[in-house]
Structures are given as structure tokens and as C-alpha cells.
Simulated scan of single mutants.
Amino acid sequence: MTNPNDPFQAIRAYHDDEIPAAIQRLVNDPEFISAIVNHRFRQSSRWVKALLSPVVKLLLKRKWGRLNTVEQVQQEVEVYLSRVLHETTDGVTIKGVEQLSKDTPYLFVSNHRDIAMDPALVNYALHQSGFPTARIAFGDNLLKKPSVTELMKLNKGFIVNRSAKAPRQLLKALTTLSGYIKHSLDDGHSIWIAQREGRAKDGLDKTDPAILKMFYMHGKSQQQSFSDYMQSLRIVPVAISYENDPCDIAKATELYHREHLGGYEKAEMEDIASIIQGITGYKGRVTVNFSAPISDVPDTPAGLAECIDQHIHTHYQLYPINYLAAERSDKKIPEQCKQTLKQKLAELPEEARDYLIANYANPVKNAMQQ
């Protein structure tokens, strides 16, 4: 039922009083329970999985039934995320938070390499540093299953409507989104959003000015100048660097198909598979580097996009594999790193290998241009 007093109801994250009912819907979703059983007990036979499903459902009801607030959900997620990062990384380094105030909400704009891990890592870094976590933007293209929507909105997620195509429908969706971002910040909640729609599969982290125009729509309706309004959002660029990209081979394959084979048709659940691979795959060392809030905002979306890019490229942590891919002979490259890249390339057809190399090399080129 739509609430006329809640203009953001269709897209916003859940409030505390909505948490128990959302959890009940989630644990009573057979498809969700089945997905957990198939993931956790993938080696088991079908009949064993059938026996395990009601047990998993009961355990989740007991474990999650005590969660009544957004904060409690966040604490549960933090436990799981800490375990995942311990198992799939060689450590997470957090930089730049000393430039931020714990009492101030920010609009975090990061580069986009992984669907789920990018916002998870920003929130992990904030939580580890004693900051409140941010509300996170996610595209409705990921909402193939009701359980995914529930999980996202339980975990401070709000919806970016990418499916709207008709001009009037699109304008309404963007206006609502812009208003919700400003409303959240004014209400004391930080926001995370990627610098562009879709992951940077080629390692070229570029901010889409259209994202910044969307931010400004609310300010424009208030007849504020672009630079003044954007200044009020307290934009903080964030550079997220993965030493190893768990989805690098899939990204290279997709780019090769798009550019040489006339297009790329995504499988029905490919985005979900990418999420799982990004979460469970080995990442090596990871760095989350926060810039200071942008204080001197340019007066155009293109100028601000360039400013954000400059911060992200400067603060991106480069690893030996980046220098190796960029053929920087002045850097000492460990033998293990050379073997790793060689093994990755061996998994691709020769024509697709340059795309994987570019994914690791382009951050070096970006940094050198600053």
C-alpha cells in the first residue's frame, strides 16, 4: 500500500519497524532457502539438500528472528563480511578516514569494480573506523528475485530505477532518486553510489556526468546553482583497489564478445553469479582510500566528473600486477605475480587477452596522467 506521506517508499531502504516482517518474508521464501542450501552444500545430493532445506529455514528463523532494527542487521552482516574478507583477501587497508567527521553525513562516490563488494567494503571501512555505515544504491536490474530485493533493502539498500525508459517515467524516477539522496543526507544518513552505471570492466574508472546531473535535479528544483548545491552534498571520492579481480576473466570475455563478435547476451542469472563470484573469489590485498570532501566544486557536471576522477586515480592503490600489465620495467615484479598473470591469460582465447591486461594496466596509466 502506497503511503502518500512517504514519497520515497517505493525505492528507500527499510526502516526499523519494517525489519521483522521483511525477515519473515525472506526466510519463508522457498527459492531463497534453496539458494542458500545449494551454495552451502553444493557437493550434496538432491535428496540430502531436500532434507536440509527445512533445517536451514528453522535455523535462520531462530537466528534472524531476533533482529528488529537496521543496526542489528548491519551487525549481523558485519560478522559475515569479516569472515568473507578473512577468507578471500590478504588484508584490507583503510586510508583517508581521518579527513572525515563521524558526525557528518557524506555522499561517497567510488569507482565500480564489483557489484556487491564495492559498497560492502566502503561500509566495512566506515564501520571499522567507528563511522556510521552508508545507505547504498543498487540498480533494479539486479532485482530478478524478490529475495534479492529484501536482502538489499534490509541492508540499507535503496533502488536506482534503470528500467524506466519513457521520458516522463524516467524523469519521475530520477527526480525521486535525487530527492531521496538529499533527504537522506539532511536526515543524517551517508550515501554510497558508484561513479557510473555498470562495472568498469576495462580498469578505466570514469565518472559519468549523468550521475551528477541526477544529484543536481533536486537542487535545480530549488533554484540553487550547480556548484552551491553539490557543495552541500559533501561529495567524498573513494578509490577501491583489488589486487586480484575475481571476475577479471569474465569481464575480458564480455568485452571481447561485445567488440568482436557483435554483442554479448547475458545469461538470465549472470548478475547474481557475478555477485557470488565477487564475494567468494580470491581478491588478494584490498585498499579502500577515502579522499577529503570536495571543497571547491566546479560549476559543471563535466568539470565535477573530472575532479572526482582525479581524486580516484590519485588514490587508487597500485599493486605489482598493475605495473606488470602496464609493462613498467622500472618496478620490481615478484615471480609469483608473473605466474599469476600468465595463468589468467592462459584461461582466455588469445584474442581476448588484451582486455584482461587492460583491466590491470589502465589504473597505472590513469595515475600517470594526474
Rank of each mutant, 00 (worst) to 15 (best):
N5L: 07
R12E: 00
I19D: 10
P20L: 08
Q24N: 15
R25I: 03
V27W: 10
N28V: 07
F32R: 02
I33A: 02
I36R: 01
N38A: 14
Q43Y: 05
W47T: 15
P54Q: 03
V55I: 15
R62F: 12
G65T: 12
L67N: 04
L67S: 04
N68S: 11
E71H: 06
E76I: 01
S82Y: 08
L85Q: 11
L85F: 10
H86C: 08
T89E: 12
D118N: 01
N123W: 03
Y124D: 07
A125P: 13
A125G: 12
R135I: 07
R135K: 14
R135G: 10
G139N: 00
K156V: 04
R162F: 00
R162C: 00
A164P: 08
K165N: 08
L170P: 01
I181N: 01
K182Q: 14
D187M: 08
D187R: 08
I191H: 00
I193H: 04
E197H: 02
D202M: 01
G203A: 04
G203Q: 06
K206P: 07
I211D: 03
K213I: 07
K213L: 07
F215K: 08
G219S: 15
S221M: 12
Q231H: 15
L233W: 01
V238E: 02
A239Y: 05
Y242C: 07
E243F: 08
Y256K: 14
E259W: 04
H260N: 15
G263I: 02
A267G: 15
A273C: 09
I275V: 12
Y282T: 13
R285P: 11
V288R: 13
F290V: 04
D296L: 02
A305K: 00
Y316D: 06
Y319A: 03
Y319E: 14
N322R: 01
A326R: 04
S329M: 05
D330A: 09
K331M: 12
C337S: 07
Q339S: 11
T340H: 09
E350V: 11
A361M: 10
